[in-house]
Amino acid sequence: MLPIGQHPVSAVPQIAKEQLENPALNPPAAPGARWQTLLSVPAATLVTLAIHLCLPNNEPANEAGLYSRFLAGVLAVAILADGVQFLWSGLKRWMRNMCPIFAAAILTLCGWELITGVLHWLPLPYFPAPGAVLQSMVDDRALLLDCTWHSLVLLLSGYVLGVLIALVTGVCIGWSSHMRYWGMPVLKVVGPIPATAWIPLAMVLSPSAVFSSIILIALAVWFPVTMLTVSGIANTRASYLDVARTLGASRWYLIFRVAIPAAMPNIFVGLFMGLGTSFLTLVVAETVGVKSGLGWYVSWAQGWAEYGKVFAALIIMAAFFSTIMTVLFKVRDRVLGWQKGIIKW
């Protein structure tokens, strides 16, 4: 088989995950510091709330204390969690790990407010205070929800389509040297073109913007997933295939029960890379073509100079994308459980 270099990125998600889980790299807080950890979130929230209420800031009149109520809510939840964490060790461990992060996030809000609302270091309609962003988010929640839903549908259709096609082409090119001869040049020439570069062509060719966006996202996912599937399949250890042959394996068994499982770690690297490119393509496609979705919402709000809404959409986008990323991590942990040697029943 033609040797195809292991992709240099292949180890990245594993390493990232191991660092998260390796206690040596991520030492738990010293026992003595625990109550400080627990109090960090309420303390940070109190500071932020005090700054918001006491320092002069030019809030839009219609805010009606929404941001104050939000901070008060956070404060209440933090104190409640501190109170009940003794009862549940899972919550306790989670809080010990997460409290500093939450405290830092809330202090970031505080700094944001200081810079924008209080000190006016940044020019105004472009950089609203957190309170104004929260207000926009609440005011426009119906439209934002609708946009999130449309983005989700578009993203998943394109991603799933791209992954399915990529797995088929990747396995074919990786397994058969004949397919590799004809397939690799296509992959090498067409693959690296960013999917967004096809937009003008797609707009001309396709009857509907939604349809062409799905195709573009699929194309963006197709390249990395195919590339890593090919490399995973082609680099299957020859001895696994030899063992299977002496056990009487058919070609079907060699492909589906040996080569594909052996390629799974690589395939998942491709899935992660493809997810990244699909986010990018989704936002661009929504901005220039489809008249819905979070990408469209951002440019629409910008057109009306409603920067509170722009920030609101960006925050939702961040939560949306990172949730999808987390889901893929969970799937990977389940499928590749054998790598970490976790016994699953």
Binding site: R237, S239, A244, R245, T246, L247, S250, R257, P261
Partner: peptide
């Protein structure tokens, strides 16, 4: 190769994605 001639390799070469019992079954599955 054929299942009529079994070979136990110098390295065990177990399939790392299968449990012990599924490794042992793999000849039957194949």
């Amino acid at each position: 190769p054929s299942a009529e001639r079994g070979l136990v390799f110098q390295d065990p070469n177990l399939f790392p994605w299968l449990t012990v019992s599924r490794n042992i079954q793999s000849g039957l599955v194949a």
